Lab assay of single mutants.
Amino acid sequence: KELVLALYDYQEKSPREVTMKKGDILTLLNSTNKDWWKVEVADRQGFVPAAYVKKL
């Protein structure tokens, strides 16, 4: 499975999103959308801005 690194803190703004902290390592589930990537963090799945994460 592919992992991404959170480059910035992100606070979810809708139930479809997830909160992450800078430095978090997240499991990447889907990166087909260039703006929003689906990730899993702490047993929750949701979207984060693609610009806020980097593939490892």
Rank of each mutant, 00 (worst) to 15 (best):
E2V: 13
D43H: 12
R44G: 07
E12H: 09
E40D: 07
W36Q: 03
K34T: 11
A6C: 12
K1W: 12
L3M: 12
Y8L: 10
T19A: 07
V48T: 02
A6R: 01
S14R: 09
V41W: 07
Y8I: 09
G46L: 05
D24T: 08
L5M: 14
V18D: 00
A51T: 13
K55V: 12
W37A: 04
K1M: 12
L26N: 01
A51K: 15
W36G: 01
K55H: 09
Q11T: 15
K54W: 10
K22M: 09
V4L: 11
A6Y: 01
N33K: 07
P49M: 03
E2A: 12
T32R: 10
E40F: 06
P15M: 10
E2G: 10
L28M: 03
E2L: 11
A6P: 00
T27K: 12
N30F: 07
G23Y: 05
L5N: 02
R44W: 04
E12W: 06
M20I: 14
D9L: 02
V53K: 00
Y8K: 15
E2T: 15
R44H: 07
V4N: 00
A42Q: 13
K54L: 14
R44L: 06
A50I: 04
V53R: 00
W37P: 01
V48K: 01
M20Q: 02
S31D: 15
K13T: 12
K22T: 07
D24N: 07
L5I: 15
E40P: 00
R44E: 04
D43G: 15
S14D: 13
R16Q: 14
L29V: 13
Q11F: 15
K13V: 08
V4E: 00
G46T: 02
W36T: 02
A6S: 05
K55T: 08
M20H: 00
D24P: 00
V18L: 14
E12F: 06
Q11R: 13
K34N: 12
V41P: 01
A50H: 04
K54D: 08
V4P: 00
L5R: 09
Q11P: 07
E12Q: 14
Q45L: 08
G23S: 03
T32V: 10
L7T: 05
A42T: 09
Y10I: 01
G23W: 06
D9E: 05
D24F: 05
V18C: 09
L26M: 13
D43F: 09
V18I: 14
T27C: 11
K1F: 14
F47V: 07
K21F: 12
S14K: 08
L7D: 01
V48G: 01
V4G: 10
Y52W: 07
V39M: 02
P49A: 02
T27D: 07
P49D: 02
L5W: 07
E17L: 06
V48Q: 00
A51E: 10
S31G: 13
L29N: 03
K38A: 09
A51D: 09
F47A: 03
P49W: 04
G23D: 06
A51N: 13
S31M: 09
L29Q: 04
P49Q: 02
K34P: 12
K55P: 12
L56W: 09
L5P: 00
Y52H: 06
W36L: 03
K21E: 07
V53D: 02
Y8R: 15
E40M: 11
G46Y: 05
S14Q: 08
E2D: 13
L56I: 14
Y10G: 00
G46P: 00
L3R: 10
K22W: 03
L28W: 01
D24L: 05
K55E: 07
S31C: 11
V41N: 15
D35L: 14
R44D: 03
F47S: 03
K38L: 15
E40S: 11
W37E: 01
K22E: 07
K1V: 15
L7I: 10
R44A: 06
F47T: 03
G46A: 03
K22G: 06
R16N: 14
Y52F: 14
K54G: 08
M20F: 11
P15A: 12
K34C: 10
V53S: 01
D43T: 10
S31I: 06
D35S: 12
R16M: 13
Y52I: 07
A50Y: 02
E2Y: 11
Q45I: 15
R16S: 14
V48L: 03
K22H: 06
T32P: 04
M20T: 03
P15H: 10
E40W: 08
T19F: 04
A42P: 12
S14I: 04
V39P: 00
A50E: 04
K21M: 10
Q11G: 08
G23P: 00
D35E: 14
K34G: 09
V53I: 08
Y8E: 11
Y8A: 12
S14L: 09
L26G: 09
K13Q: 15
D24Y: 05
